[in-house]
Write a protein that binds this DNA or RNA. Structure first.
Lengths: 109, 109
DNA sequence: ATGCTATATAGCCGTTGACTTATATAAGTG
DNA sequence: CACTTATATAAGTCAACGGCTATATAGCAT
């Protein structure tokens, strides 16, 4: 599943936002999402699986708990894809700051 | 349709890349996409409609032609959504450069 | 062992989205 | 006006996705 398809789902975006706050157990995520979206535990679990499989999240076990953390690698891919459009809103010196931010010392075209 | 859903489709992403090169007629887009993805003219036209409706593209008429151009507003929304994750890969001074690039002088939390 | 807690998987179903072909609309051309 | 070009819309099909309930798996507690 492509990164953008993963991010297409509002529940998955919300889960990533939660994980951005720090590592959270499946149960923690279920609690919040259930309150906000009213979907079942299995539904949330499936979203977590998608996030795992697509590289957006990593898991580690803690007894019966599964602790999820965000992995930004695919988000960085998205960010890099956006690069080709930044020229449209990054004019002036902002473009320079962005260059630095993205570590593109070699680009000159 | 949410911005991420729009970007979820590879054909639409490709169309945006084409428009990033400059204004193109529907026919120009159809030609490329048809060659690369082997889908019909109406299919491409429908994708262009989605891009229009979701604000990713603007059109102007030139006789029977429709000239499409990219509108980056929704892409900027996506970029801003990514902000909450940048802390994970924007460490050191790069973060500062990004701050400048995004014009966030007020943030302090 | 037995049961409770935490999480994942299986199997089913309805909706949606991305195609298709056929056709409509609109503007230039002979 | 009739024809062709350029593009959009209509209507139908099919697969994929996201939800559900039921159940399996695994670890802790009694």
């Amino acid at each position: 599943m492509h990164a953008f398809d993963v991010l297409g789902d509002p529940v998955r975006r919300r889960i990533l936002e939660l994980l951005a706050e720090g590592e959270k157990s499946s149960g923690d995520v279920v609690a919040v999402v259930q309150r906000e979206y009213g979907i079942s535990q299995p539904a949330v679990s499936q979203h977590l699986k998608v996030l795992r499989d697509s590289g957006f999240a990593t898991v580690r076990a803690d007894a019966q708990r599964r602790l999820y953390a965000v992995d930004t690698a695919p988000l960085r891919d998205v960010d890099r894809w956006l690069d080709q459009f930044r020229a449209f809103w990054d004019h002036k010196l902002e473009a320079f700051a962005t260059e630095i931010a993205r570590g593109k010392k070699k680009r000159r075209d």
